[in-house]
Simulated assay, not measured.
Amino acid sequence: MTWYTGDQFYDTALIGGFVFAGLIMLASLFGQSAYGRFGGRAPGVSFPPRLGWMLMELPAPLVFAIVYLQGDNRGELVPMLLCGLWMFHYANRGFINPLLMRVFPGSKASFNISVVVFGWIATGLHGYFSAAFISQLSPQFTDAWLSDPRFIIGLGVYAIGFTLNVHSDAVVRNLRPKVPQPNAPRYTIPHGGGFRFVSSPSYLGEMLSWLGFAILTWSLAGVFILLVTMANLVPRALATHGWYKKKFEDYPSDRKALIPYVL
């Protein structure tokens, strides 16, 4: 079936990707992905947080690199810049941020294998869709694309989202001391930055990043990962907000879950 790029395999796989995103949306109505504060009671094998995150994200850069290097446009300026942006994002998301995590002493493995497996599907599809579109299937990525309003606006949105994501992760990370303290509280209320407005600014930042990527590439590959991210993180943000309010009596009453002043 060719309806988007003209490549039968890609276009058919893209339909399957959107079906997968829809299934994630449905599944999120019945509970949160089993990692972090919501992962301790899930049945089956679980990994420590750092290992779980890196395992889950690993297919993304591997698949992207393999597919990208097979594209006819892999040596062109704009595809190389988009490749660099994509790899930059996953280097932070899949490796740098997990390695910087400050895990509470004595914590049990809380990253369930089911999250890793579904993550492999999502990140593997994302790597394929993005790399094939950027390096092979899109006719639009000439040098003129760098001055296109879609690229400029999308890059700006991406930069805002990425900055919010990284800063929010740093705020949460710094709630725990660099040297583990067994008697320190496991969870405290974060303040500052995006936390002045919402309980999950890192989730908002991640969604803004992929919204920006979808705009700057003007691609359904970007829409796919945006939908997958929203399907996972919107319900999780609402659950996290409820968890904070239940756990802390003095939790800021004017703080929203995900979108300042709205949600």
Rank of each mutant, 00 (worst) to 15 (best):
I15A: 09
P180F: 00
P48M: 02
V198S: 03
L208G: 10
A27F: 01
T2S: 15
Y244N: 07
P252M: 01
G161N: 09
A60I: 02
G22S: 13
Y203D: 01
I160N: 09
G16H: 08
P180T: 02
M87E: 14
F20P: 05
I15T: 13
T123C: 12
K246S: 15
G119M: 07
K108R: 15
W53R: 02
D169H: 07
Q8F: 07
P43V: 08
F151P: 11
V63N: 03
S219W: 03
I113M: 12
L69A: 14
F18P: 11
F151A: 06
I66M: 11
T12W: 07
T217I: 05
Q136K: 11
Y203Q: 02
L51V: 15
D72P: 05
P105L: 01
L69T: 09
W218E: 03
A239D: 13
P61S: 13
G222H: 10
I225S: 08
G6C: 09
A109W: 07
F64T: 11
A239G: 10
S253A: 14
V115P: 00
M80L: 15
L62D: 02
R74V: 10
K245S: 13
G71N: 01
A170H: 13
F162W: 12
T188R: 14
T123M: 06
E206M: 00
F151S: 06
V116S: 00
L211C: 13
R255K: 08
S46I: 01
A221C: 09
P105H: 00
I189S: 05
I113Q: 03
H126L: 04
P48T: 03
S253I: 11
L226E: 09
Q8H: 08
F18Q: 04
G106R: 13
I259C: 07
T163V: 12
G192R: 00
H191I: 07
V172I: 15
H191N: 10
I24W: 01
L51D: 12
G156I: 05
F195A: 01
W86I: 13
A65G: 12
V198L: 07
F162I: 10
K247W: 01
R37N: 07
F47L: 15
Y203C: 08
T188G: 12
P260D: 03
S253H: 10
A60V: 06
T5S: 14
P98E: 06
W218V: 03
Q8G: 11
K247Y: 03
F64P: 00
W53S: 08
I215P: 14
L233N: 08
T229E: 09
G154M: 00
V223H: 04
G39L: 08
F118S: 13
L258S: 06
G36H: 09
S114P: 01
L69I: 04
I189K: 03
P235Q: 00
L226N: 10
F64V: 08
A60P: 01
E249V: 12
Y35G: 01
F133I: 11
K256T: 13
A60W: 00
M1F: 12
V103F: 03
F38S: 08
R37P: 10
G222Q: 10
Y68G: 12
L58Q: 04
T2V: 11
G6S: 05
S46Y: 03
R102H: 05
L125K: 06
S130L: 02
T229V: 10
T12Q: 05
P190T: 03
Q181I: 02
F18N: 04
P43Q: 04
L51P: 12
S110Q: 10
A231S: 15
M1V: 13
L69H: 13
S219I: 07
